[in-house]
Design a protein around this nucleic acid. Structure first.
Lengths: 219, 219
DNA sequence: TCGTGTGAAGACGTTCACAGCT
DNA sequence: AGCTGTGAACGTCTTCACACGA
């Protein structure tokens, strides 16, 4: 019965470990200890071991973890064995920048199409993903069996577009709109609110007169 | 002795409440109950009351909270009474999009200058913030007493630029580089890793065969 | 009666500390 | 000796549930 639930925070950190491991692997390093990897990932060694414990038993006592094997195991758990298609909705400032961003591809996601209310207005410099009218989104999602969407529309339209995505069959949304989206429980939403992230930093900066407030760390 | 430490997670939510309250205020709504505001913010009502409890006693039993008064109180705690200057470092895809993004301004931050290794290469369409060579950053930070920086440089340069920012006197960094930054304890870093946020969504989407994994919610 | 404020309980996440394997 | 794997302690955040004021 190896069916322990993996907490969301652990998942997030596993992704970080995965990146570090890939770098180690590229450098031909075959083994790494929890303390070394933990330092690279910015976490406590005990936490790292606890996190890896969810995957099974990989380490060798007195030695450490086998880099490529562990990397592979994490990739499997994260479900990153093959490319996963994603659509982008909203190709304004941010959406366009995200379309040019190669970080998603590097982590195994492929942005296969983009949708905008006014696709004619989109500046296509450096964008090689087709940009369609948002009307065509539901059909595209259905026929290509899309599960993931990145939402980068203005706040005022976010809820409406989110509803359309959910109706079309999307099951996961990464939203950049500064709004709280209401979705059914079956749909996963992750909201990245840029201004709030900055505000978070700001608070802990100005509070350093003497009251030693703890450092904020992403969930 | 009203000196209770406010947890980071509460700070983040206070920012959300603040936004909701501003919207209510614009709509001339004078009073709001914890359950209404909580629903708008996507949290549990008890949590909302607990969070507001850190600020003091504002509500009226049987009635709710005075919208504008509460909004003001939060703004004070967050230290958002006046505009706060921020610099942007790295004006590539993402950096340029963030410069055009008006969300920071709306939350009381002003991006006063941007820096890039190759400022000549920056496409200035829609950007009205001066873009300087990164060499000039330390002097600018010192003479303008800048405390906050947004970092949007490639991963390979992130740590180096981060060091320069810290040396120059920056105390808070919002980083978009997919790397773990090592900084002194006195400096606050908040790292937003776009690909990892998408990965987080992806994991919880594909795990819905039957194992009902919990929904991830930002910090 | 309605809704706040809060003690107490519970859930969750992190870290310690050490037994045990190599 | 060195490092993993993990019970147990600890700390933090969330939610319940209800007393109390308007």
């Amino acid at each position: 019965m190896e069916k322990a639930e993996i907490p969301g925070k652990t998942i997030y950190r596993l992704s970080i470990y995965h990146r570090c491991l890939r770098r180690l692997d590229e450098n031909q390093i075959e083994t790494v200890s929890s303390s070394t990897l933990a330092k690279a990932a910015g976490v406590n060694p005990a936490q790292l071991r606890r996190d890896l414990g969810y995957l099974g038993t990989f380490g060798t006592r007195g030695l450490g973890y086998p880099v490529s094997e562990l990397s592979e195991a994490i990739r499997e758990v994260l479900g990153r064995e093959n490319l996963q298609p994603v659509i982008m909705v909203g190709v304004g400032n941010l959406g366009a920048a995200l379309l040019r961003y190669d970080g998603f591809q590097k982590e195994g996601f492929e942005v296969v199409a983009a949708f905008d209310a006014v696709p004619e207005a989109v500046v296509l410099r450096g964008i090689d993903v087709p940009v369609h009218d948002v009307d065509q989104m539901p059909a595209f999602v259905a026929s290509n069996n899309i599960k993931l969407a990145v939402l980068a529309v203005p706040a005022a339209q976010a809820q409406e577009v989110s509803n359309e995505l959910v109706d079309a069959g999307v099951q996961g949304i990464l939203s950049f709109s500064p709004t709280v989206l209401q979705v059914p429980d079956s749909v996963t939403v992750n909201s990245v609110d840029l201004a709030l992230e900055l505000e978070q930093v700001s608070f802990f900066v100005k509070k350093d007169g003497k009251g030693n407030t703890p450092k904020p760390v992403k969930g």
